[in-house]
Amino acid sequence: MEADITLVVDGERRSLTVDTRTSLLDALRDHLGVTSPKKGCDHGQCGACTVLLDGRRATTCLTFAVAQDGAEVITAVGLVTDGELHPVQEAFCENDAFQCGFCTPGQVCSVVGMLDELRAGHPSHVTADLTAEIGTDPAIEDDEIRERMSGNLCRCGAYGNILAAVRQVTSS
């Protein structure tokens, strides 16, 4: 069964016909040629396919394209404006927050989404005081960031440098 859908991908409206079994990730990669999000597991276990979906970070392998008709998708490419890298991307480059780079677009999108969640005051599994104003706390603990980024695996083990990159962004 097929369905006609429209997605707004990195600011561009794209219409396509998909098999209703097609994941959003495969729609982006195979149908639209948007290969910035990567497929590491296809089961929502690694985070390599993370994008900002209607403003929130999401693993695109875990949702069907047909269920996202009309949605806005921002990939790591879409975070670039006027040829300038997003501050998170700049910080990744400076802190060598990757090696092979395969999980990196997902990590970058995840950091951007995570920082929004922090600003919005969302608690995490390790948040001690659920009533505290997390987003306004300048001293977010490293454990908060590590916990919130744990859905994005990196087999090269760049976690320390990813944390340093996040720290560079949160402190500026």
Partner: peptide, 14 residues
Amino acid sequence: AMAKVTGMAPYAYD
């Protein structure tokens, strides 16, 4: 670095 943080570095499938 820039190719990797944007996801533009082409891996085999890309």
